[in-house]
Simulated assay, not measured.
Amino acid sequence: MTFALETTGLSKSFGGFEANADVSLSVAKGARHALIGPNGAGKTTFINLLTGVLPPTSGSIRMMGEDVTRVSQQGRVRRGMARTYQINQLFADLSPIETISLAIAEREGSGARWWNRVGKDSAVIDESEALLRRMKLGAMMTRRTATLPYGKQRLLEIALAMACKPKLLLLDEPAAGVPEDERHDVLDSVEALPDDVTVLLIEHDMELVFSFADKISVLVQGALYAEGSVEEISTDPHVKAVYLGEDTHV
């Protein structure tokens, strides 16, 4: 079986501190896979290894069967990997339609001259508008991004990742910091992502995890601690003890 994402013995050390230790994780094509763990579990380091921000100390990463362990961040994006961030990485002074049009123009190889072409390129504008409407941003696509409610900014970051037409999407805590009255838009949009896009979700919001995932992996102290279905993980007394904060006698 060819997995969308597969790590084998992936480890990362910073001096004498091992942030990730021998992590072997497989994400099936089309999966809705969640990665959870307590603060300090090594989730951010793991995502930075997957995306090429950090080189591993040991181990390998395969994407769609291809070894990408030493491939650059840009090379992984070209192969179909996209990500969001815990803290928004958006252009505050651009509007959503400008932001998404820029991403699409860059994807199509015309990003360096996007300001001359985007306004005249109906295909780029049409794709941008359609994507923003799917992400519940149609009513504010011309507003300055800095003025958008925080939940809408989170949706825009997901839309920005989707503008790359990814095969593999890494969502890093998309509901983090989103007010309660805006969370359902984020949850609905994540659940409505296309079936042909494999999603690895890193999240603390258990409502989102349990409603979205078909498989959950648990990291504890940098190592893979448990894996299973939503039912298996949600009822595992050991996981409850280390992650959900419940007192168990096991």
Rank of each mutant, 00 (worst) to 15 (best):
H238A: 08
D214R: 14
K240L: 15
C164G: 05
F91C: 07
M162V: 14
I233W: 04
K167S: 13
Q86M: 15
D188H: 14
K120D: 12
A28S: 11
L168V: 13
Y225V: 07
S60H: 06
L187N: 15
T235D: 05
L219Y: 05
P149I: 11
D236P: 11
L90Q: 11
V190A: 00
F210T: 10
L244A: 15
V77L: 13
T7R: 01
L54R: 09
F3T: 12
S26A: 11
F46M: 07
V23F: 02
R76F: 12
E6G: 06
K43R: 12
F91D: 04
R113M: 11
K240V: 04
T235V: 05
S211P: 02
P194D: 04
K167Y: 08
E246M: 10
S60V: 09
L94N: 03
F17P: 07
V250R: 12
M81E: 03
R134Y: 00
E157K: 04
T198S: 12
E129I: 09
G52P: 07
Q89S: 09
F212D: 03
I202P: 05
G9K: 09
F46Y: 10
K136W: 00
A41S: 06
G15A: 03
L35N: 12
S234H: 11
L5H: 03
K167H: 09
L10C: 06
F46I: 08
G109L: 03
A82L: 12
D185E: 15
A41H: 08
W114R: 13
Q153C: 01
V178Y: 02
G138V: 01
E227W: 01
G222M: 08
S211R: 14
P174I: 05
E98D: 15
V220A: 07
L160W: 01
R78D: 08
H184G: 14
I233N: 02
I97W: 00
A226C: 11
D205F: 15
R143T: 01
G16F: 04
R32L: 08
D181E: 15
L90R: 02
V23M: 01
L169M: 12
S95Y: 00
G80Y: 07
V197N: 03
